[in-house]
């Protein structure tokens, strides 16, 4: 109660597969126990290989979506190339730490493939920018505990894109069903070297 991180609710997750990554989130936006919207997108496409998912206080989710998009657009103009996932992670980290003593109440997740060798990259952050690198999965939001449980039991390394989609979807869906503040629909992005697949999942609406 009155914790800014769990006012609006929401959950996000990223996973590494074989030469691919998946990133997903729920679609709920609420005011404490009251559901307000079942179409609140928490994932931004930074460029064709890099995605950012944000959970936490919805106003800060919107602000940071715009801020990071703005910074990466300027980056592309200045450098004449797309930002790399590891560089993006450090950019987000320094942007969050800039507000060390009045933080954005969010827990971001970055997922992408590097430009040169399409190496999968995922990481998470705390609200003041400490990077949590991972070789398997990263979770965030009000269903964090449930997501960890699902990931620990369902995840296996080197899944192909189709199997990774199945794993991440089941992990997310079953986690949010045990969280009153998450759910109300979900989106999953599967990123491989030559295409992005977005799937909107129909879920229970209670």
């Amino acid at each position: 109660m009155s914790d800014p991180f769990s006012l609006n609710g929401g959950a996000a997750i990223a996973m590494i597969g074989k030469d691919c990554i998946a990133i997903a989130s729920d679609l709920r936006l609420g005011q404490q126990s009251l559901g307000v919207s079942n179409n609140f997108d928490k994932i931004v496409e930074i460029n064709s290989k890099n995605f950012l998912a944000l959970t936490g206080l919805a106003t800060d989710v919107l602000t940071l979506k715009e801020l990071i998009k703005f910074k990466t657009n300027l980056y592309k103009l200045r450098e004449e190339r797309d930002i790399e996932p590891s560089t993006l992670a450090n950019l987000i980290s320094s942007s969050l730490y800039e507000k060390r003593f009045g933080p954005w109440f969010i827990s971001p997740i970055v997922g992408g493939l590097s430009k040169k060798d399409n190496k999968p990259f995922i990481c998470g952050f705390d609200s003041i920018g400490c990077i949590d690198y991972s070789n398997d999965f990263i979770v965030s939001g009000t269903a964090t505990d449930q997501l960890y449980g699902m990931c620990e039991s369902l995840y296996e390394p080197n899944l192909n894109p189709e199997d990774l989609f199945e794993t991440i979807s089941q992990a997310l869906l079953n986690a949010v069903d045990r969280d009153a503040l998450s759910g109300w629909g979900a989106v999953v992005y599967i990123i491989t070297k030559d295409k992005i697949v977005k799937r909107v999942l129909k879920t229970r609406q209670d």
Binding site: E79, T87, N90, L91, S94
Partner: peptide, 9 residues
Amino acid sequence: KRIYNEYPP
């Protein structure tokens, strides 16, 4: 460097 943790091109 303090933004991207890498040196400029």
